[in-house]
């Protein structure tokens, strides 16, 4: 018999290194000869879209288009350290550093331009002319951002370990086949707090990807480690979802700008996957009345739990 149920998973997530660990991002913004702006930073593009989002922050700050931002992040010998591409920290931390470097560059450009031509409004300044008129001079701004975090007390764990926190809620509907134990997610909704959306489409992409990874964590993934040996060490036996396993996800971006974020933005890369598995587990209970307390919720575990439930009822 196929039974349906709904479940919700609600989470919070502290972004950044945390617990007082120095969490520093750096950026350098340089006006190029042709009036475009180069951003140098060590923040890695791992596929999450940081190169695009961080270019947008630079473009916004300087009032230029994203095509006029040249983003350089691939070489340690020419880029400043911006910390790791982890902890959902690049948009917030490096975004802030880039914003600061661009603001400083902007101030310097205004300084030299006002001295030279008397223009005072940023909108009146043509960056190509500035570059041309100040050929011999390197116009650059440097930005450093240090996240707010304090070390917690040893005996009580009290303190302010992270800032900011990002919130995420998933709701799913599942269909459980009680004859073979297969769980299918048939409907899914994600509401993601983002502070401010720098690029909504990229955020949606993160939500979709986090959803697939969370679904897989709940239902499929198991390394099957026996005496220290990974038995599922190939893609033939370590299962991750195909396009057939992931339903469409309804995505709700919730904006509530964070005062310390670049244009209000917060990190979302990790939160987007966290609420999925608990929502699925709660939906399974709603459908068939058994709590799966050990991941993954494989057909075998579902059938065993159902059998146990029947035995208890007898």
């Amino acid at each position: 018999m196929k039974k349906r149920g709904k479940g919700i998973g609600s989470i919070f997530y502290g972004t950044g290194y945390g617990n007082g660990f120095p969490d520093v991002s750096r950026s350098v913004a340089v006006l190029r000869k042709d009036g475009k702006v180069k951003i140098y930073t060590g923040a890695t593009e791992v596929g999450q879209g940081s190169k695009t989002v961080l270019s947008q922050i630079a473009a916004e700050t300087l009032g230029i288009s994203i095509e006029d931002v040249i983003f350089i992040c691939e070489d340690t010998s020419i880029t400043p350290d911006a910390g790791t591409a982890a902890a959902s920290r690049q948009t917030y931390n490096t975004g802030n550093a880039i914003k600061k470097s661009c603001e400083e560059l902007k101030r310097k450009i205004i300084d030299v331009t006002v001295k030279a031509s008397g223009a005072d409004a940023w909108e009146e300044i043509n960056l190509r002319d500035v570059a041309l008129n100040h050929k011999g001079q390197i116009l650059k701004g440097e930005g450093e951002f240090i996240a707010e975090t304090t070390e917690m007390k040893d005996e009580t764990g009290q303190g302010n370990p992270y800032w900011p926190y990002t919130f995420n809620v998933y709701g799913v509907e599942v269909e459980v086949d009680t004859t073979n134990g297969v769980v299918e997610v048939i409907k899914a909704v994600c509401a993601q707090d983002v502070g401010r959306a720098i690029n909504p489409k990229l955020i949606e992409g993160q939500m979709d990807g986090g959803f697939a990874m969370g679904l897989s964590y709940a239902l499929f993934e198991d390394l099957n480690i026996k005496n220290g040996e990974i038995k599922h060490n190939k893609l033939t036996n370590y299962l991750i979802p195909t396009a057939m396993d992931v339903p469409d996800l309804e995505k709700i971006i919730v904006e509530d700008p964070e005062a310390t974020g670049p244009y209000g933005a917060k990190g979302i890369g990790e939160p987007v996957m966290i609420g999925v598995a608990p929502a699925i587990l709660n939906a399974i209970y709603d459908a068939i009345g058994v709590r799966i307390t050990e991941l993954p919720a494989t057909p075998n575990k579902i059938l065993l739990a159902l059998k146990k439930k029947r035995e208890v009822a007898l």
Partner: peptide, 14 residues
């Protein structure tokens, strides 16, 4: 596309 795995996008935008 079920023979092509993707770990980032969750396939929806594909």
């Amino acid at each position: 596309i079920s023979g092509n795995l993707c770990r980032c996008t969750g396939y929806n935008k594909i």
